[in-house]
Protein backbone atom coordinates (compact mmCIF):
# COMPACT_ATOMS: atom_id res chain seq x y z
CA UNK A 1 0.00 0.00 0.00
CA UNK A 2 1.33 3.42 -0.89
CA UNK A 3 1.45 6.15 1.69
CA UNK A 4 -0.50 9.39 1.34
CA UNK A 5 2.75 11.31 1.28
CA UNK A 6 6.19 9.79 0.97
CA UNK A 7 9.20 12.06 1.21
CA UNK A 8 12.63 10.61 0.53
CA UNK A 9 16.00 12.30 0.75
CA UNK A 10 14.60 15.81 0.56
CA UNK A 11 17.36 18.42 0.43
CA UNK A 12 16.93 22.16 0.15
CA UNK A 13 20.04 24.12 -0.75
CA UNK A 14 20.62 27.84 -1.09
CA UNK A 15 23.55 29.12 -3.11
CA UNK A 16 26.17 26.89 -4.68
CA UNK A 17 29.80 25.83 -4.44
CA UNK A 18 31.62 26.69 -1.24
CA UNK A 19 28.92 29.11 -0.08
CA UNK A 20 26.15 26.56 -0.42
CA UNK A 21 23.84 26.33 2.55
CA UNK A 22 21.94 23.10 3.05
CA UNK A 23 18.92 24.22 5.00
CA UNK A 24 17.17 20.86 4.90
CA UNK A 25 19.21 17.68 4.55
CA UNK A 26 18.10 14.17 3.69
CA UNK A 27 14.64 14.37 5.12
CA UNK A 28 12.64 11.15 5.04
CA UNK A 29 9.02 11.34 6.00
CA UNK A 30 5.86 9.40 5.40
CA UNK A 31 2.31 10.34 6.23
CA UNK A 32 -0.65 7.98 6.09
CA UNK A 33 -4.29 8.98 5.88
CA UNK A 34 -5.67 9.84 9.30
CA UNK A 35 -2.21 10.11 10.76
CA UNK A 36 -0.65 13.13 12.42
CA UNK A 37 3.08 13.51 11.96
CA UNK A 38 4.76 16.17 14.08
CA UNK A 39 7.87 18.06 12.94
CA UNK A 40 9.56 19.39 16.05
CA UNK A 41 12.60 21.56 16.60
CA UNK A 42 13.84 24.97 17.69
CA UNK A 43 13.53 28.06 15.53
CA UNK A 44 15.73 27.88 12.45
CA UNK A 45 15.75 24.10 12.20
CA UNK A 46 14.17 24.01 8.75
CA UNK A 47 10.69 22.97 9.82
CA UNK A 48 8.83 25.77 8.07
CA UNK A 49 11.11 25.52 5.06
CA UNK A 50 10.20 21.84 4.80
CA UNK A 51 6.51 22.76 4.73
CA UNK A 52 7.07 25.45 2.11
CA UNK A 53 9.09 23.00 0.05
CA UNK A 54 6.32 20.42 0.11
CA UNK A 55 3.94 23.10 -1.20
CA UNK A 56 6.56 24.32 -3.66
CA UNK A 57 6.42 27.85 -2.24
CA UNK A 58 10.17 28.13 -1.82
CA UNK A 59 11.93 31.20 -3.18
CA UNK A 60 13.45 30.70 -6.65
CA UNK A 61 16.95 30.70 -5.17
CA UNK A 62 16.26 27.43 -3.31
CA UNK A 63 17.45 24.22 -4.95
CA UNK A 64 15.28 21.25 -4.08
CA UNK A 65 16.40 17.65 -4.49
CA UNK A 66 14.95 14.33 -3.48
CA UNK A 67 11.58 12.74 -3.98
CA UNK A 68 8.12 13.72 -2.83
CA UNK A 69 5.40 11.23 -3.71
CA UNK A 70 1.75 11.97 -3.20
CA UNK A 71 -0.26 8.73 -3.39
CA UNK A 72 2.64 7.15 -5.21
CA UNK A 73 2.82 9.96 -7.76
CA UNK A 74 6.03 11.99 -7.94
CA UNK A 75 5.04 15.64 -7.38
CA UNK A 76 8.50 17.14 -7.16
CA UNK A 77 8.76 18.00 -10.86
CA UNK A 78 10.84 20.69 -12.53
CA UNK A 79 8.19 23.30 -13.10
CA UNK A 80 5.98 22.63 -10.10
CA UNK A 81 2.95 21.94 -12.32
CA UNK A 82 1.83 18.83 -10.43
CA UNK A 83 1.70 20.54 -7.06
CA UNK A 84 -0.13 23.49 -8.60
CA UNK A 85 -3.06 21.22 -9.39
CA UNK A 86 -3.08 19.80 -5.87
CA UNK A 87 -2.69 23.01 -3.89
CA UNK A 88 -5.77 23.91 -1.94
CA UNK A 89 -7.74 21.02 -3.33
CA UNK A 90 -5.86 17.95 -2.09
CA UNK A 91 -3.08 19.49 -0.03
CA UNK A 92 -3.85 22.52 2.09
CA UNK A 93 -1.64 24.55 4.34
CA UNK A 94 -2.22 26.80 7.35
CA UNK A 95 0.42 29.41 7.99
CA UNK A 96 2.17 30.48 11.12
CA UNK A 97 1.06 34.09 11.24
CA UNK A 98 -2.68 34.43 11.57
CA UNK A 99 -2.32 38.22 11.71
CA UNK A 100 -0.94 38.58 8.21
CA UNK A 101 -2.17 35.51 6.38
CA UNK A 102 -5.52 36.92 5.32
CA UNK A 103 -6.19 39.42 2.56
CA UNK A 104 -6.97 42.69 4.36
CA UNK A 105 -9.19 43.94 1.51
CA UNK A 106 -11.93 41.32 1.61
CA UNK A 107 -14.30 39.98 4.24
CA UNK A 108 -13.39 36.59 5.64
CA UNK A 109 -16.59 35.09 4.25
CA UNK A 110 -15.55 36.24 0.77
CA UNK A 111 -12.13 34.69 1.15
CA UNK A 112 -13.46 31.31 2.21
CA UNK A 113 -16.08 31.41 -0.51
CA UNK A 114 -13.41 32.25 -3.07
CA UNK A 115 -11.52 29.08 -2.31
CA UNK A 116 -14.74 27.04 -2.48
CA UNK A 117 -15.72 28.53 -5.81
CA UNK A 118 -12.25 28.00 -7.18
CA UNK A 119 -12.00 24.32 -6.32
CA UNK A 120 -15.55 23.02 -6.11
CA UNK A 121 -16.95 25.28 -8.84
CA UNK A 122 -20.01 26.15 -6.79
CA UNK A 123 -22.19 29.15 -7.62
CA UNK A 124 -21.62 32.31 -5.58
CA UNK A 125 -24.61 31.98 -3.27
CA UNK A 126 -23.99 28.38 -2.38
CA UNK A 127 -20.32 29.09 -1.75
CA UNK A 128 -21.25 31.89 0.64
CA UNK A 129 -23.57 29.53 2.49
CA UNK A 130 -20.89 26.90 2.73
CA UNK A 131 -18.41 29.48 3.98
CA UNK A 132 -20.70 30.15 6.92
CA UNK A 133 -20.99 26.39 7.50
CA UNK A 134 -17.19 26.15 7.60
CA UNK A 135 -16.96 29.00 10.07
CA UNK A 136 -19.37 27.11 12.27
CA UNK A 137 -17.30 23.97 11.87
CA UNK A 138 -14.18 25.74 13.15
CA UNK A 139 -16.28 26.90 16.11
CA UNK A 140 -16.66 30.55 15.38
CA UNK A 141 -19.64 31.97 17.19
CA UNK A 142 -22.30 33.82 15.18
CA UNK A 143 -20.75 32.77 11.84
CA UNK A 144 -23.35 34.69 9.80
CA UNK A 145 -22.11 37.98 11.23
CA UNK A 146 -18.46 37.02 11.31
CA UNK A 147 -18.49 36.15 7.62
CA UNK A 148 -19.07 39.83 6.93
CA UNK A 149 -16.11 40.93 9.05
CA UNK A 150 -12.78 42.08 7.67
CA UNK A 151 -9.64 40.38 9.02
CA UNK A 152 -8.63 43.41 11.09
CA UNK A 153 -11.88 43.13 13.02
CA UNK A 154 -11.05 39.64 14.27
CA UNK A 155 -8.68 38.47 16.98
CA UNK A 156 -5.65 36.32 16.24
CA UNK A 157 -7.38 33.14 17.34
CA UNK A 158 -10.36 33.82 15.14
CA UNK A 159 -8.17 34.61 12.17
CA UNK A 160 -6.31 31.37 12.70
CA UNK A 161 -9.62 29.53 12.67
CA UNK A 162 -10.61 31.37 9.51
CA UNK A 163 -7.35 30.14 7.98
CA UNK A 164 -8.35 26.63 9.05
CA UNK A 165 -11.75 27.12 7.44
CA UNK A 166 -10.08 28.12 4.16
CA UNK A 167 -7.80 25.09 4.37
CA UNK A 168 -10.77 22.81 5.07
CA UNK A 169 -12.95 24.33 2.36
CA UNK A 170 -12.26 21.58 -0.14
CA UNK A 171 -11.77 18.62 2.20
CA UNK A 172 -8.03 18.25 1.68
CA UNK A 173 -6.50 14.80 1.99
CA UNK A 174 -3.32 16.23 3.44
CA UNK A 175 -3.14 19.22 5.73
CA UNK A 176 0.11 20.99 6.55
CA UNK A 177 -0.06 23.08 9.71
CA UNK A 178 2.87 25.40 10.23
CA UNK A 179 2.94 26.24 13.94
CA UNK A 180 -0.83 26.69 14.01
CA UNK A 181 -0.96 27.45 17.70
CA UNK A 182 2.11 29.58 18.31
CA UNK A 183 0.32 32.90 18.22
CA UNK A 184 -2.67 31.74 20.23
CA UNK A 185 -3.44 31.59 23.90
CA UNK A 186 -3.91 28.22 25.54
CA UNK A 187 -7.70 28.00 25.31
CA UNK A 188 -7.86 28.85 21.61
CA UNK A 189 -4.90 26.59 21.08
CA UNK A 190 -6.87 23.69 22.53
CA UNK A 191 -9.84 24.50 20.29
CA UNK A 192 -7.70 24.56 17.15
CA UNK A 193 -6.08 21.26 18.04
CA UNK A 194 -9.48 19.76 18.73
CA UNK A 195 -10.55 20.70 15.22
CA UNK A 196 -7.44 19.04 13.80
CA UNK A 197 -8.08 15.88 15.78
CA UNK A 198 -11.70 15.79 14.69
CA UNK A 199 -10.69 16.24 11.07
CA UNK A 200 -8.24 13.38 11.26
CA UNK A 201 -10.86 11.10 12.74
CA UNK A 202 -13.85 12.10 10.64
CA UNK A 203 -12.35 12.95 7.27
CA UNK A 204 -9.33 10.65 7.58
CA UNK A 205 -7.05 13.53 6.69
CA UNK A 206 -3.30 13.13 6.96
CA UNK A 207 -1.67 15.96 8.88
CA UNK A 208 1.84 17.33 9.08
CA UNK A 209 2.00 19.37 12.25
CA UNK A 210 4.94 21.71 12.65
CA UNK A 211 5.53 22.90 16.18
CA UNK A 212 8.12 23.53 18.82
CA UNK A 213 5.72 22.64 21.58
CA UNK A 214 6.21 19.05 22.67
CA UNK A 215 3.13 19.32 24.86
CA UNK A 216 0.98 19.74 21.76
CA UNK A 217 2.72 16.77 20.16
CA UNK A 218 2.05 14.43 23.06
CA UNK A 219 -1.68 15.00 22.87
CA UNK A 220 -2.11 14.69 19.18
CA UNK A 221 0.64 13.22 17.08
CA UNK A 222 1.16 9.62 15.99
CA UNK A 223 4.73 10.01 14.80
CA UNK A 224 7.35 12.57 15.72
CA UNK A 225 10.29 13.82 13.68
CA UNK A 226 12.81 15.87 15.64
CA UNK A 227 14.80 18.25 13.46
CA UNK A 228 17.99 20.05 14.34
CA UNK A 229 19.77 22.51 12.01
CA UNK A 230 18.12 21.03 8.95
CA UNK A 231 18.78 17.39 9.79
CA UNK A 232 16.56 14.75 11.27
CA UNK A 233 18.04 13.68 14.59
CA UNK A 234 15.31 11.40 15.86
CA UNK A 235 12.22 9.87 14.39
CA UNK A 236 9.82 7.61 16.28
CA UNK A 237 6.22 6.87 17.21
CA UNK A 238 5.03 9.35 19.81
CA UNK A 239 5.10 6.85 22.71
CA UNK A 240 8.76 5.99 22.11
CA UNK A 241 9.76 9.64 21.98
CA UNK A 242 8.29 10.25 25.40
CA UNK A 243 9.18 6.96 27.07
CA UNK A 244 12.58 6.35 25.47
CA UNK A 245 14.02 9.59 24.07
CA UNK A 246 17.39 8.59 22.66
CA UNK A 247 18.99 11.64 21.14
CA UNK A 248 20.42 14.10 23.69
CA UNK A 249 18.67 16.91 21.83
CA UNK A 250 15.28 15.26 22.25
CA UNK A 251 16.02 14.68 25.91
CA UNK A 252 16.99 18.31 26.24
CA UNK A 253 13.76 19.44 24.63
CA UNK A 254 11.74 17.21 26.94
CA UNK A 255 13.65 18.35 30.02
CA UNK A 256 12.98 21.97 29.09
CA UNK A 257 9.24 21.54 29.52
CA UNK A 258 8.27 23.03 32.89
CA UNK A 259 6.51 20.61 35.23
CA UNK A 260 4.10 21.22 38.01
CA UNK A 261 6.16 19.06 40.35
CA UNK A 262 9.23 21.24 39.87
CA UNK A 263 8.25 23.79 42.50
CA UNK A 264 8.53 27.54 42.12
CA UNK A 265 12.19 28.03 42.83
CA UNK A 266 13.67 25.52 40.45
CA UNK A 267 15.35 27.01 37.39
CA UNK A 268 14.00 25.68 34.10
CA UNK A 269 16.28 23.24 32.35
CA UNK A 270 17.66 24.54 29.11
CA UNK A 271 19.86 23.44 26.27
CA UNK A 272 22.91 25.70 26.38
CA UNK A 273 23.72 27.79 23.29
CA UNK A 274 21.70 28.30 20.14
CA UNK A 275 21.17 26.45 16.89
CA UNK A 276 24.33 26.90 14.79
CA UNK A 277 24.10 28.95 11.63
CA UNK A 278 23.64 26.36 8.91
CA UNK A 279 26.56 27.88 6.99
CA UNK A 280 28.95 27.22 9.89
CA UNK A 281 28.07 23.70 10.93
CA UNK A 282 30.70 21.98 13.04
CA UNK A 283 32.34 18.89 11.61
CA UNK A 284 31.08 15.61 12.99
CA UNK A 285 27.83 15.58 14.91
CA UNK A 286 26.07 18.92 14.44
CA UNK A 287 24.78 18.87 17.98
CA UNK A 288 28.16 18.15 19.59
CA UNK A 289 28.78 21.74 20.72
CA UNK A 290 25.65 21.86 22.81
CA UNK A 291 25.43 18.24 23.84
CA UNK A 292 25.58 17.40 27.53
CA UNK A 293 27.11 13.96 26.95
CA UNK A 294 29.51 14.77 24.11
CA UNK A 295 32.52 12.49 23.68
CA UNK A 296 35.67 12.79 21.61
CA UNK A 297 34.52 10.60 18.72
CA UNK A 298 31.39 12.75 18.29
CA UNK A 299 33.47 15.37 16.47
CA UNK A 300 34.80 12.91 13.93
CA UNK A 301 32.06 11.89 11.52
CA UNK A 302 28.42 12.77 11.09
CA UNK A 303 26.21 10.13 12.71
CA UNK A 304 23.66 8.51 10.39
CA UNK A 305 20.00 8.06 11.20
CA UNK A 306 19.88 4.45 12.38
CA UNK A 307 17.16 2.23 13.70
CA UNK A 308 17.70 1.62 17.39
CA UNK A 309 14.45 -0.21 17.95
CA UNK A 310 11.32 -0.90 15.95
CA UNK A 311 10.28 2.23 14.04
CA UNK A 312 12.59 4.31 16.24
CA UNK A 313 15.45 6.05 14.44
CA UNK A 314 18.18 8.15 16.00
CA UNK A 315 21.21 9.99 14.63
CA UNK A 316 23.67 9.85 17.52
CA UNK A 317 26.96 8.06 18.20
CA UNK A 318 25.90 7.35 21.75
CA UNK A 319 22.12 6.98 21.77
CA UNK A 320 20.69 6.39 25.19
CA UNK A 321 18.32 3.54 25.03
CA UNK A 322 17.71 2.82 28.66
CA UNK A 323 14.09 3.21 29.67
CA UNK A 324 13.31 6.44 31.39
CA UNK A 325 9.87 7.75 31.98
CA UNK A 326 9.30 11.37 31.27
CA UNK A 327 6.16 12.62 32.84
CA UNK A 328 4.43 15.62 31.41
Amino acid sequence: MTSLLEVEGLCVTFGSGAGAVRAVRDLDLSVESGEIVALVGESGCGKSLTALTLMRLTPPSARVQGSVKYRGDQILDDKGLKIKALRGKEIAMVFQEPMTSLNPSYTVGDQIAESIRLHLKLPRKQAAKQAIELLRRVRIAAPEQRAKAYPHQLSGGMRQRVMMAIALSCDPKLLILDEPTTALDVTTQAQVLEIVDELRKEANTGVILITHDLGVVADLADKVVIMYAGSTVEKAPVESIYSRPSHPYTRGLLAAIPRRTDGVRKRLDEIPGTVPIVRELPSGCIFADRCSCVEVDCRGAVPKLEMIEDEHYCACWHPQIEVETVSL
Binding site: L52, M55, L57, K84, R87, G88, K89, A92, M93, F95, Q96, E97, T100, S101, L102, N103, P104, S105, Y106, E114, S115, L118, H119, M163, I166, A167, S169
Partner: peptide, 24 residues
Amino acid sequence: EFIQAAIASGASDFSVIFRYLLPN
Protein backbone atom coordinates in the same frame (compact mmCIF):
# COMPACT_ATOMS: atom_id res chain seq x y z
CA GLU B 1 2.06 35.81 4.14
CA PHE B 2 -1.42 36.28 2.77
CA ILE B 3 -0.06 36.16 -0.76
CA GLN B 4 1.74 32.91 0.02
CA ALA B 5 -1.38 31.63 1.74
CA ALA B 6 -3.39 32.47 -1.37
CA ILE B 7 -0.97 30.56 -3.60
CA ALA B 8 -1.01 27.67 -1.13
CA SER B 9 -4.78 27.50 -1.34
CA GLY B 10 -4.54 27.21 -5.10
CA ALA B 11 -5.19 30.77 -6.29
CA SER B 12 -4.14 31.41 -9.89
CA ASP B 13 -1.70 34.18 -10.82
CA PHE B 14 -4.62 36.12 -12.27
CA SER B 15 -6.55 36.01 -9.03
CA VAL B 16 -3.45 36.82 -6.98
CA ILE B 17 -2.91 39.92 -9.11
CA PHE B 18 -6.47 41.18 -9.21
CA ARG B 19 -7.82 40.05 -5.86
CA TYR B 20 -4.77 40.26 -3.64
CA LEU B 21 -2.24 42.69 -5.05
CA LEU B 22 -4.37 45.36 -6.72
CA PRO B 23 -6.89 46.06 -3.91
CA ASN B 24 -4.09 46.31 -1.38
